[in-house]
Design a protein around this nucleic acid. Structure first.
Lengths: 133, 133
DNA sequence: CCGAATCCAAAACGATACTG
DNA sequence: CAGTATCGTTTTGGATTCGG
C-alpha cells in the first residue's frame, strides 16, 4: 500500500472538538441512528442488517458498524465458519445509546407536522417579502 | 425496556430521507446543537452568539440559524435600527427541541469515559491481532 | 458471505471580501 | 452589525472491484 503522499501541507492543526461531540456525531449519524434502532429490537447479521435498513452501501454500513463497535456500542461476533457469519448486537452501553437517540427520533416524528407548518409559513412570508420589492 | 412487543410507534426512519430524519439532522448538526444549547439559556445577538460558540464561521452560523428558523425552532427579531440589531431566541417548539438534544448531549458527556475506555480496548485488541500475524 | 481498498463526484466547510 | 457572495479546500458517500 503506497502510503507515501508527499502532500502534507498542514501539520494537522489541533481541531479540539470536545469528545462528547464526537460521540454525538457517531450515534446521530445518518446510518448510525438506523443501525442502533434496528439492533434495539434484535441482533442482525451484516447482510441482513443491510437489507433491513435499505439504501445503505456496504461501505457505509461497515464503516458505521466499526465506529459504533469501537465506541463500545456494538458487539461484533464473528463466527469462524465458512461461509463467514458475523452477528451484530448492542452492548449495554449501546442499548442506552440506542434508547437515547430513539427517543429523539420519536420526538422528531411527533413534531413533523409542526415543522412542516413552520416551513410553509416561513417560505410564504419570504415570498411575500420578495414580491413587495 | 422492551421495544419489540409494542405496536411500533416507529418513525419512518427506515425510509430514505423521511421528514423526521431531516429534522433530526438539523437539530443534531454540528452547530445546531451548540446554537440550541446557547439559546436555551437566553437570547443572543448574531455576533454575540458567534463569540459564545466559538470556532464557527459567519457563513455556517447564518446558515444554521436560517435552517432552525425555517423549521420553527428559532425566532429572529430584526430591529429596524442603525446599526442593525438582530436578536435570536427559541420558540416554544425550539425550546422543546433544545431540551431534547441537550439531554442527548448530556448523556454523551456522562458516557465519555466509558467510550474512551472502549476505544482503548478496541485499539489494543486490534494491535495485538495485527502483531500476531 | 463479510468486508477492505480504490476511485471519483458531490456536498460541506472556512476564509475572505463585499453590501446594506 | 448582520449578513451575502465567491472560491478553494476538505470531507463524505456511493459504485465498483478485489480478497479471505
Amino acid at each position: 500500500m503506497a502510503v507515501s503522499d508527499d502532500r502534507v501541507p498542514v501539520p494537522d492543526v489541533n481541531r479540539e472538538m470536545c469528545p462528547s461531540r464526537r460521540i454525538l456525531e457517531h450515534v446521530t449519524s445518518r446510518w448510525g441512528v438506523l443501525v442502533l434502532a434496528a439492533l434495539l429490537e434484535r441482533s442482525y447479521r451484516f447482510s441482513e442488517l443491510r437489507r433491513e435498513i435499505g439504501g445503505v452501501s456496504e461501505k457505509m454500513l461497515a464503516q458505521t458498524l466499526q465506529t459504533l463497535e469501537r465506541d463500545g456500542f456494538v458487539d461484533r461476533d464473528a463466527k469462524p465458519v465458512i461461509p463467514p457469519r458475523v452477528d451484530y448486537s448492542l452492548t449495554q452501553l449501546g442499548k442506552e445509546a440506542a434508547e437515547q437517540v430513539w427517543g429523539l427520533a420519536r420526538w422528531s416524528e411527533r413534531r413533523v407536522a409542526d415543522v412542516k407548518a413552520a416551513r410553509v409559513s416561513y417560505d410564504d412570508e419570504k415570498a411575500r417579502a420578495a414580491a413587495s420589492l
